[in-house]
């Protein structure tokens, strides 16, 4: 990647050891707990009046938020080299490829212009 840099990324020097400190960790923890409780109660409500599948979208939205928080702060991605970002995001991108290209088959079966 950045071949111009000749020095190593050295966690001892460049990154503060404490990252976000104990209050920070507790704050992240609070977000996760609230997210869990929220997702539980929202799942009990019928959100189909907004649009069909709204419940799924909300549940996944909360899960993604929780994942992002865990990744960024507990797993220190926020302070990690770009390469770590790339491998984390890249894997999810590949998963999206798998979902999207599989579902483009299933969602175009039977009905519509291309149906048979």
């Amino acid at each position: 990647m950045a071949e111009q840099t000749t020095e190593h990324h050295n966690p001892h020097i460049e990154v503060p050891n404490e990252h976000i400190g104990i209050p920070g960790y507790l704050g992240v923890f609070a977000v996760l707990v609230v997210g869990t409780i929220l997702t539980y109660y929202v799942a009990l409500m019928d959100l189909d009046w907004i649009f069909p599948g709204a419940n799924t979208l909300v549940a996944l939205g909360i899960a993604f938020t929780k994942m992002t928080v865990v990744g960024l702060f507990f797993m220190h991605v926020r302070w990690s080299p770009r390469l770590v970002w790339m491998s984390a995001v890249g894997a999810f991108f590949w998963l999206t490829i798998m979902f999207a290209y599989t579902m483009q088959d299933y969602l175009t079966r039977g009905t519509g212009f291309f149906g048979h």
């Binding site: 483009q104 088959d105 175009t108």
Partner: peptide
Amino acid sequence: FLVWGHHMFVSGQSMYASLVF
């Protein structure tokens, strides 16, 4: 990674997916 469906042209995959692949 984006072309695997060309193994499945005659196995019941949707025509749209076959075109894309």
